[in-house]
């Protein structure tokens, strides 16, 4: 059967992998190419790179990193951050990305999702949604790295993105991100049940049970984590063995 995917996430700025708490307080985690190779060796199913560079001046750095990684790592690579037009999607694919993640620009210009998926195929268009709980069973979409409220309902927004041609949803709980208390499982479950396309749960993983819960309780098709892998607490292999013991199908 199809395996649930484990996806280490590398937030990149100024050529380094960093990790913050609830989108702030950045901590250095190392060289992106070295880290990517390490996770590949550990059996990561995919890698996600998010370019969190604030200014557009340093955009070229991420292209260089992706080119280097794609020469050496033969698993799917997703890249996001600063994607504003179809040309940005094309440039990232040409650098070696297999999928491109669109977040703020999908809200500003939903047609970008339709145009990019029509041009390059749904399989390479991931829509990233940063959601925050606003009432019991209600989540709102935020953009600009979590700073700006949109008034959009996260579940309805995810459905709209599916309709426009997204191939996958990367769903991050802003409430949980960096807290190491586990995914927002109710949010994950609400979105995955509403969609036909795969959902990647993100934000809040602090231990291996959190990853298992994302699949078993949240119903996620894939789970994404950063700091538990970056700082050596667990390897991807350990995460998979742990999940396999709980009866979750993984690629070992």
């Amino acid at each position: 059967m199809l395996a649930k995917r484990i996806i280490p996430c590398l937030d990149v700025t100024a050529g380094r992998v960093v990790k913050g708490v609830s989108f702030v307080e950045l901590r250095d985690a190392g060289d992106p190419v070295e880290i990517a190779k390490r996770y590949d060796d550990q059996g990561a199913d995919e890698l996600t790179f998010l370019d969190i560079t604030a200014s557009s001046d340093d955009r070229s750095i991420i292209f260089h990193i992706i080119e280097k990684v794609a020469e050496q790592v033969f698993i799917p690579l997703t890249v996001g951050g600063g994607v504003r037009e179809v040309q940005d999607v094309r440039n990232l694919l040409n650098a070696g990305a297999d999928k491109v993640s669109i977040n703020t620009s999908a809200v500003v210009n939903p047609q970008l999702v339709a145009d990019a998926s029509a041009r390059y195929g749904s399989q390479c268009i991931v829509v990233a949604i940063d959601a925050k709980q606003v009432a019991p069973g209600k989540w709102e979409v935020f953009t600009h790295g979590g700073r700006k409220a949109t008034g959009l309902d996260a579940v309805e927004w995810a459905k709209k993105m599916q309709t426009l041609g997204a191939g996958e949803i990367l769903l991050t709980s802003m409430d949980q991100d960096g807290q190491k208390k586990g995914f927002d499982l109710a949010l994950t479950r609400a979105v995955t049940d509403a969609l036909e396309i795969p959902v990647i749960a993100s934000g809040g993983v602090g231990n291996l049970q959190h990853l298992a819960d994302g699949v078993k309780i949240g119903g996620a098709d894939a789970v994404l984590a950063a700091s538990i892998f970056h700082f050596g607490e667990y390897t991807v292999q350990q995460a998979k063995e742990y999940m396999a013991k709980q009866g979750i199908e993984v690629r070992l």
């Binding site: 199809l2 395996a3 649930k4 995917r5 199913d45 749904s122 399989q123 191939g167 996958e168 995955t192 049940d193 969609l195 036909e196 396309i197 795969p198 959902v199 119903g219 098709d221 894939a222 690629r251």
Partner: peptide, 9 residues
């Protein structure tokens, strides 16, 4: 639910 596209390993 089994999602379509069939995506993954």
């Amino acid at each position: 639910k089994l999602k379509v596209p069939h995506m993954g390993w």
